[in-house]
Amino acid sequence: MITTVTLNPAIDITLELNQFILNEYNLVHQVSRIPGGKGINVSKAVRAYGSDTMALGFLGGNTGHLIADKLRDYGIITNFWHIEEETRTNIIIVDHKNQTHTLLSDPGPKICKRDLEHFKSIFSRVMSQSKIVVISGSLPIDVDNDIYYQLIELAHQKKVKALLDASGIVFEKGLEAKPILAKPDLRATGNRVFDKVIDDQETAIKIAHEIINRGVEIAVISYQDTKDIIATKEEVWLAETIDQKVVNIIGTAEAMLAGFAIKLVQEEKEETDKVIRFAMACGLASALTEEEEFHTREDIDRCLPYIKITKLK
């Protein structure tokens, strides 16, 4: 079982209209309500491939129940701790005439110490039936920045491998627990990791090595939209996607993480380049599929030839 953690999930409501005019009555042509949050997106991609997955985290109110219902409909097992405050809602206004996307982001509910303790208890129990856990995304208000460190430690106590995708201090603290794979989320920090800005391939490789030196087995740096550096202790790889018509960038990085999780959970070990190619193909398959739709195992197979992999070391 691949388990995912989303501490601050959201429902993304996209309102599409011909033209959005302030202070006017605007008729919306299309509405979609999609559960969001990094861990949830990983679970969706794992499920798209057909593997089993369980989503954990916090949910609250009617929005929380809406998210849980949708995830179960996708075939994802849920074990969320329900809180009294409402789960956040992000509103995305898509104006077709002016080609604009306006995002109104809700900071989300506060999580109290008692809720966190209950969540950690659930997490620890669920690790008994998990082989891999993907811990990713931003933290809710008032949650300590070493929470991912604590969760990875709990996973290791039950011999579960952990994948970490986070940013800033939360990422750095998480690394101290030595997850098997770590990927800094560069969007939230202006491409900055360990106080260095990643603006070229050379810096990406340096940062990947720095992550490996902290006890991680696989470091993934997505330093450009179509380019990733993947490093292990012995090897460094550059993975690129060959030009394709991308229709959706939401969830691409999470689909790639799902790809790594699917391969790492397998009994038989595959060669590194094959694992990287598969993970990148998962990301590409997601990018070529509209957000409200699901890519399939066949889509991933079709994407494999569009991944170029070069061994740099």
């Binding site: 369980m54 849980a68 995830l71 179960r72 075939g75 994802i76 097992i77 849920t78 074990n79 969320f80 329900h82 208890s121 129990r125 669920v126």
Partner: peptide
């Protein structure tokens, strides 16, 4: 089945 594994100790 309902894929909810909410449970208590």
């Amino acid at each position: 089945m309902l894929r909810n594994t909410a449970s208590v100790l």
